[in-house]
Amino acid sequence: MIYDKITENIIGAAIEVHKDLGPGLLESTYQECLFYELKTMGYSVQKEISQPIVYKDITLDHGYRIDLLVEHKIVIELKTVEKFTDVHTAQILTYMKLGNYPIGLLLNFNTKLLKNGIKRFINTME
């Protein structure tokens, strides 16, 4: 898949951030550091992207924000939680569906090893 190398690089950058900082910090700290790493790697990265919701004939421009969007295609949702729940999965899948994004990464920085806090999603509705 065309996004494999990019997601591999994103995961590598996230692991580097986690190795350097460790668990236990605020989500916003990891977001800023991962944003920095990805920008340094030359990727197009946006943070806190507003995700509008269209309901019938109205558009709601508030309520949802994507943590990071890489290359206008890959949604990154960051967490610092004990463990992922179904709500976390639903959240990233909803962002991917609403924006028609093909790939999503759910990253939990509140783990001893980041590799145990990574979930990758593919939007089959694209």
Score class of each variant (00 low, 15 high):
124 T>P: 02
101 Y>T: 02
112 K>N: 09
115 K>L: 07
101 Y>D: 01
5 K>C: 12
43 Y>D: 03
53 I>Q: 01
19 K>W: 01
65 R>C: 07
51 Q>T: 05
19 K>P: 02
19 K>E: 08
36 Y>A: 13
109 F>G: 00
105 L>Q: 04
111 T>Q: 12
81 V>H: 01
61 D>C: 06
123 N>Y: 05
20 D>K: 05
107 L>D: 04
44 S>A: 12
117 G>W: 07
65 R>A: 05
85 T>F: 09
113 L>F: 07
20 D>E: 09
56 K>R: 13
96 M>Q: 00
113 L>Y: 06
119 K>H: 13
4 D>I: 15
89 T>W: 00
29 T>H: 06
28 S>T: 12
43 Y>E: 11
81 V>L: 10
5 K>T: 15
58 I>V: 12
93 L>K: 06
25 L>V: 03
36 Y>W: 14
94 T>Y: 01
88 H>M: 08
103 I>G: 01
43 Y>C: 10
28 S>H: 11
110 N>D: 15
9 N>Q: 15
25 L>M: 02
40 T>Y: 14
112 K>W: 03
63 G>M: 10
29 T>K: 03
47 K>R: 13
14 A>F: 08
46 Q>K: 05
121 F>N: 03
124 T>Y: 10
83 K>V: 04
74 I>Y: 06
48 E>A: 03
44 S>L: 15
54 V>Y: 05
119 K>Y: 10
115 K>E: 14
70 V>S: 10
82 E>W: 01
53 I>P: 07
47 K>F: 04
93 L>W: 00
104 G>M: 01
123 N>L: 04
